[in-house]
């Protein structure tokens, strides 16, 4: 998996003002904190420069990459065999996750990755079966700052859902 090339391109787009900020989220971000598992695409959450109107468009990202010769397959851009999906931060929680992402080292490059507490909050918000399974793995293997997590959950009105989840899976 050639992530370094993707990171280089992301920084290039940031430099050109096509994206304002980015961070890795989704399953690949989870892999940064827990044991590796099978996943296929790289989710890149982006903050875009302010645009006219209410609709957010990611067309400039795809146009730039298409111009550079990268293939677009449905919602993914294939960069050196890595399917990359660009997701504009779609609510306050994901915006915060991008802004507060931590820098991790990938070989010699630095890579902004969502904090584990944000990943947990997003998973509890999305609440698909795979998210629930993943939450269990994260709680078992990763070091989580409980106070920080509760603060995020409270601010984004997810604490009740979280407590329900904990009751259901752990009985407390």
């Amino acid at each position: 998996m050639r992530i370094a090339k993707v990171l280089g391109l992301l920084d290039e787009m940031k430099g050109k003002g096509i994206i304002e900020k980015y961070a890795i989220g989704g399953a690949m971000a989870c892999v940064a904190y827990i044991e590796p598992f099978v996943t296929y695409d790289l989710d890149v959450f982006v903050l875009l420069p302010s645009q006219e109107g209410h609709l957010i468009s990611i067309t400039p990202i795809y146009a730039y990459l298409r111009e550079k010769g990268y293939r677009i397959d449905k919602e993914h851009v294939i960069i050196d065999d890595v399917p990359v999906q660009f997701i504009p931060a779609y609510n306050k929680l994901t915006e915060e996750a991008v802004n507060e992402a931590v820098e991790m080292r990938y070989k010699t490059t630095k890579m902004p990755v969502f904090r584990i507490e944000h990943l947990l909050a997003i998973m509890i918000q999305t609440d698909r079966p795979k998210d629930r399974t993943r939450i269990v793995h994260v709680l078992d293997q990763a070091k989580v700052d409980d106070d920080y997590l509760v603060d995020i959950l409270r601010r984004h009105r997810l604490l009740r859902r979280w407590n329900e989840f904990k009751r259901k899976f752990y009985g407390n």
Partner: peptide, 12 residues
Amino acid sequence: AKLPLDTKYKIV
């Protein structure tokens, strides 16, 4: 879980 990121992505 403690392995370096590049090793983990190699495993993926």
